[in-house]
Write a protein that binds this DNA or RNA. Structure first.
Lengths: 111, 111
DNA sequence: GCTTTAGATAACCAACTAGTTAGATAACTA
DNA sequence: TAGTTATCTAACTAGTTGGTTATCTAAAGC
């Protein structure tokens, strides 16, 4: 995998299990046990997903007795949202220009 | 890789070479030759990146004599942007609630 | 001190990724 | 027809991913 932070964030989000974990965390901090409950998957598998999310900076780890509650870290998601929104707008403009061009062609044909 | 379309789009975007290719295509259609020019990488390597982008639905392939010009397809990027923006907002609300709560605690302490 | 609970780590495996070189296909050019 | 250009496919390699089971650590409860 590429090592830049945007690539790490995109890669971390490219898995439905990890996106579901983030969705759960959006309702508040949760322990590993709570996070793994919905998935038909071993604990270590969830631990690995959490490590991917953590290396991407999307979550952070707390410590409370024998629990390590995870919480969201918004910064990388903000970078992803900004990138996607920016490029979505550019692409749209691109397509608008194409539409304008096709419209113009039609007009010239008629004339 | 997970097979759902959102996962495929995120995975395709998780590589700086592929994001650069998309950035180039945002300025208009381009041949494989043109797309590979900026990269110190063999043609087949670029072909593979293009296949990943195509399977994610982010680009389409034209045909003109011996060229196969690629163009952008906006739909999957829109899905990515929507997902990211939606969750960014939820996370922010989450953090706002946390801030409110901490503010409230401070107020109660003072009282 | 022993048991239980939460979680991490290690070792392994199958599948996939990102690159390579070599060779095939298909269309233009002289 | 022969040669050149654009592109794709095949076969290979090294490294990564996503899962498993087995084992370890640390805190809590009795």
């Amino acid at each position: 995998m590429a090592t830049d932070s945007l690539s790490a964030a995109f890669a971390a989000l490219a898995d439905p299990t990890r996106r579901a974990i983030l969705a759960r965390l959006a309702t508040g901090p949760a322990t590993v046990k709570e996070l793994s409950a919905p998935f038909p998957m071993s604990g270590p598998a969830i631990s690995k997903h959490l490590r991917v999310l953590e290396r991407a900076g999307l979550i952070a780890q707390g410590r409370e007795a024998q629990w390590r509650p995870r919480t969201l870290e918004p910064q990388p998601l903000k970078e992803v949202a900004d990138w996607a929104e920016k490029h979505r707008k550019i692409w749209e403009k691109n397509f608008q220009r194409l539409d304008d061009y096709l419209e113009q062609l039609k007009g010239e044909e008629r004339a």
